[in-house]
Design a protein around this nucleic acid. Structure first.
Lengths: 141, 141
DNA sequence: CAGTATCCGACCTGATACTG
DNA sequence: CAGTATCAGGTCGGATACTG
């Protein structure tokens, strides 16, 4: 933001096609930030897994949501879906190089969250306990 | 993921409190990934802005969503809200150091998206045009 | 100016049941 | 085993109208 995005709309005036970029970023963030994607990606990181294994490990996800999440990831080329023509069907999901690189990019954010989660938690507590202070404070007399 | 998160659940067995971390990450990602937060943060990056200015610059946001987004950000300590006791009310929003550091962390992701958005777009197109291939492909005979 | 209140439709999610 | 179909509940987001 400060560097890449911030630079793009350095002067605050307009945001020409910078908005497009943000839209795309938001799109990806929304995907990564949805309820199950990050968990699924993480579980998939060590290696390929089949549907049921995923369903077990993601813990709490419904079949519906899992297959939906996986389809989205597959569509974006972040994971591969390989179906083996067996009698009990066998389908394996694995990260693609692209998916792996996304995981690495997400790592920075993960680190940030780990470093600052306590700050955020504290801020929330303070905010929730003192909702009256907002209108009272006046920076200059 | 590959480094920090990946290391944490190196062996795939269980994910003890690693899941907690992921939950927190997801929480932050969900905030950043929601419809307006990233845009708001970006617009706020160059410097403080008042409510109406934000409403103008975010382009498309409703008052409701803007105040909701800002309240969330304020609650997390990512932006400050300063109300000046004037007759026409004047309220300014600005990034906190924490908010600024989040922006920097997001930068990595922004860069990734810029580098790979064309890949994703292409993958989606391919996927959408060949929905029949999924069951047909068999890796080994 | 800087919001809040209210209503409403769209979408996201989970639970359950069913199939190739 | 690996999903899809269907339904119900909740949340998200926008439009509009109203205040201190």
């Amino acid at each position: 933001m400060t560097s890449s995005l911030g630079a793009e709309l350095a002067q605050r005036g307009v945001a020409p096609d910078c908005v497009r970029t943000i839209e795309l970023v938001r799109d990806v963030l929304a995907r990564v930030g949805d309820k199950w994607t990050l968990l699924t990606l993480t579980v998939l990181a060590p290696g390929p897994l089949r549907f049921t294994a995923l369903h077990d490990q993601v813990a709490g996800i419904s079949q519906r949501m899992l297959s939906q999440t996986l389809r989205g990831l597959t569509r974006d080329g972040l994971v591969t879906r390989t179906a083996y023509p067996h009698v009990p069907p066998r389908v394996e999901y694995a990260l693609t190089p692209l998916g792996r690189s996304l995981c690495e990019a997400v790592d920075g954010l993960v680190g940030w969250v780990r470093d600052h989660q306590s700050d955020i938690a504290r801020n929330r507590d303070e905010f929730d306990q003192a909702p009256a202070a907002s209108t009272a404070t006046r920076p200059y007399p």
